[in-house]
Design a protein around this nucleic acid. Sequence first.
DNA 1: AATAAAAATGGACAATCATCCATTTCACGG
DNA 2: CCGTGAAATGGATGATTGTCCATTTTTATT
Lengths: 209, 209
Amino acid sequence: MSVISGNQIKKKRHRQQLVDATIETVSEFGIAGASVTRIITRAKLSRGMIHLHFDNKEHLLIEAARHMSDVYYAQLETFLRSAGTNASDRLRALISADLSDKILNPKTVNAWFAFRGEARSHNSFAKHSDTRDDALRQMFIQAYRELAKDRNEPDALARDAAHGTIALLEGMWADYLLHPDAFNRNTAKRIVFRFISALFPVNFDTTVN
Amino acid sequence: MSVISGNQIKKKRHRQQLVDATIETVSEFGIAGASVTRIITRAKLSRGMIHLHFDNKEHLLIEAARHMSDVYYAQLETFLRSAGTNASDRLRALISADLSDKILNPKTVNAWFAFRGEARSHNSFAKHSDTRDDALRQMFIQAYRELAKDRNEPDALARDAAHGTIALLEGMWADYLLHPDAFNRNTAKRIVFRFISALFPVNFDTTVN
DNA sequence: AATAAAAATGGACAATCATCCATTTCACGG
DNA sequence: CCGTGAAATGGATGATTGTCCATTTTTATT
């Protein structure tokens, strides 16, 4: 049975409206400037809705951070699905997804860094303000292990390569945040691949697709 | 003559107390939580001091960001002075300074990311929330140009290497912010050098000092 | 249509915010 | 040790904040 009522649909839509409006408001005004009034004005909903759906403002902010994390991992999976199964293909997919405009765009990046800026002082944000968490790290390590299998200390090399690649991607996001006009997606990608290619000369070339 | 009065010394000390207290408060409570009351309580000064020395809270925050930037570059120069003059020595100095505990410590890093989180929404912060700005970039490019001089397209290689190195350092800071317990300064340094060594095999080895 | 339950509204509320300024305290030359 | 101008104080003020809840509107059921 499980008939979905009109109310339930509406409720879900309103929830999403609030989450979206929150991300946009945080992106534009920062966490400090994301007041309840600004959020509900943008969502075109009434004041009480935040309390109704999320109990309080903090839970709404946490849900907004979680939603961004979900979108990130969904994008990774999309890219992974349409990629080959060998290690270098998977690496290329992960990196391309990370730098794709679905997630590397002004709204998302602003909001990410805004949440991250409050991560330490606001414990509840910390969990969701780390996109590149252990799950992603494991994907990278797994892929690099295949590339490193004939090298000296392959495990250490794979771990270092994964650690460094994540740091590189992180740095490219910061670059995008701080120099949005000068930033070039393909340049960023080329540089990441250039560094990786130097570590694994056999498996990559310096051309960018 | 320029005799410095007791008043002037006191005034300067109070200014610095406010800046320090602001950085500490931002580090602990974020920008959103850094209220005037919290700042002046920590500084052990009276309410009106902010208005007296900085006109308003915003100017105080900007000065705090500027001060952190000054400390960063002072640290770079300290390391550069005690380093050799060839390219690889200078690179090693820049990277070691960036990852040194004088600036890569909980208080500073928290505050950096807090300011950066508000950079886009609060234009006045943006200028000072980018540690690794053009001045540092030029130092890296200059050094890498020497290493790249016998390679193909040395200028492009030097620019990419500088861009990537800055991104790597940026990523290591984010790693420190989000995983302070797991973070290891020497590991971070080793990984950065490992990536650079792969790009310039002649000039670096993988051992860390 | 009528009725009950659920959802949504938006004004009211106390708490907190940054700023201001009348008052007090201090430093210093005479 | 006094007098003067600058420095420092901290309570008052109005604006803004997140939360709450009495009322209205919408939805589902009879």
